[in-house]
């Protein structure tokens, strides 16, 4: 009963520690990669946090969401990556924001091996992207600073360019053709982009499991907010994605676990590892042919402290819900968010209110309390499926003196 109505947690346990902990063990029968938060002590690409760090993350998240909306709206209108590029372009050319993922595509990174012999490449993993790309030698136009050595096609025994006449290039909705080589281009909501040669090479997901002839972008013109990562690992549902390319090998099954905090590690796994796990609660995945990249789910309700909120199902149905590893904060229709916020505030009235942080408008100052009692929040799906969020999924802990309800509202009900 208690676990369904609330969580008692120490505020300090919601904050990342200064050292990395909780490593994930490899399972012998599963292709499993270690997954870490880009800004935590487990990350090889960690940078020192600035004072307004959390607000920056949330502001970036808003840009990311805006771009997702833009892509979906464009697809609904008949554009958005379904038609060939209208302009011929060389790798140095700016590309329209119609393909690729979005800014802040990954808060979580994994390290893979690319080429023969494999060279380590640290990539953001993103279920909202299809094309995988890395920065490539000789960086004919531009490369940003990255952690790993730049991938050098000349040093790989298995590297090959993809020709314009190939099916792979057709699947890509290529940007251009240059001397018979397929040119890919992905652009991002903030103007970040990667353009280069569409290529194939061996991709080692683990030291013992490689994908031969994996199709990826070998970036020659790369710029933007990618931190120190070498590129992006695309796990969307479209044809160029890793998931689709490995459909026969892993049966279109993959999974991940995002750790509780930035000082813990999670995993990204491929193959049928957990589908028979009796603790897994399943809900239907919905797909839209106009936006094949995205995975949609049918969220129909929310409960707080074990009580279902009075939100008409039509509120959720009107806009739909997609699940995305690259969006930080869950966005709800305004009516749903208002109901959640009201119920949450009612259960948190004993705590001192704190100022809003960016898009998070319901914050509290738990200073001096040590332990806080959070109302349980569950997401409801058809078939009586209830997913009870972890405490780390209910509040966003900015620092020891500010925890905020980790949800935000969309601008409109049909957004």
């Amino acid at each position: 009963g208690e676990s369904r109505s609330h969580h008692k947690v120490n505020v300090s346990s919601l904050l990342p520690r200064k050292v990395c902990s909780n490593s994930i063990d490899a399972l012998s029968n599963v292709t499993r990669l270690r997954l870490v938060h880009r800004h935590g002590p487990c990350s090889p690409a960690v940078r020192r946090r600035r004072s307004n760090f959390e607000a920056e993350i949330l502001a970036r998240d808003q840009l990311h969401v805006g771009f997702l909306r833009q892509r979906i709206a464009a697809a609904e209108l008949g554009g958005g990556g379904t038609s060939p590029a209208s302009t011929r372009a060389a790798p140095s050319t700016k590309i329209p924001a119609r393909s690729g993922a979005s800014v802040s595509a990954g808060d979580y990174i994994v390290t893979v091996g690319l080429g023969t012999p494999p060279k380590a490449q640290t990539l953001f993993f993103d279920t909202g992207s299809d094309v995988t790309w890395v920065q490539c030698q000789p960086c004919t136009v531009s490369c940003y600073r990255q952690l790993d050595q730049l991938f050098d096609p000349a040093s790989s025994a298995t590297y090959a360019n993809v020709t314009c006449a190939s099916a792979a290039c057709s699947d890509l909705d290529a940007l251009d053709c240059s001397d018979g080589t397929c040119i890919y281009g992905v652009s991002y909501g903030d103007g970040s982009q990667s353009v280069g040669f569409y290529s194939s090479d061996a991709l080692a997901l683990t030291p013992s499991d490689a994908v031969p002839r994996f199709l990826f972008g070998c970036g020659q013109a790369n710029e933007g907010l990618f931190g120190l990562a070498a590129g992006i690992l695309g796990l969307g549902g479209g044809r160029p994605s890793l998931v689709t390319q490995t459909m026969k090998k892993y049966n279109g099954v993959f999974g991940y676990c995002l750790p509780a905090s930035a000082s813990d590690t999670g995993y990204l796994a491929f193959g049928d590892s957990g589908s028979t796990n009796p603790t897994v609660k399943y809900t239907n995945m919905l797909r839209d042919a106009k936006t094949p990249t995205f995975y949609f789910i049918n969220l129909i309700g929310i409960s707080v402290a074990g009580q279902r909120l009075r939100i008409p199902p039509s509120v959720f149905a009107k806009a739909g819900t997609l699940i995305d590893s690259g969006t930080v904060i869950t966005r709800l229709p305004p009516a749903a968010y208002a109901s959640l916020r009201s119920a949450f505030r009612g259960r948190m009235s004993r705590y001192k209110k704190a100022p809003a942080v960016s898009i998070l408008d319901t914050c509290y100052d738990p200073t001096g309390r040590g332990e806080v009692k959070l109302p349980a929040v569950a997401l409801l799906f058809p078939g009586d499926v209830s997913v009870n969020l972890a405490p780390e999924g209910i509040v966003y802990t900015v620092n020891e003196s500010r925890i905020c309800l980790a949800f935000a509202a969309n601008d409109g009900d049909d957004d």
Partner: peptide, 30 residues
Amino acid sequence: VGILGNVQQRTFGVLYDVPKKKIGFAAGGC
């Protein structure tokens, strides 16, 4: 569109079965 973001997915094993069109959530995944 509503979006289920990564904060809410923390600690769950999130399983995608694309051919069967199922998404699974397992509490305490990591």
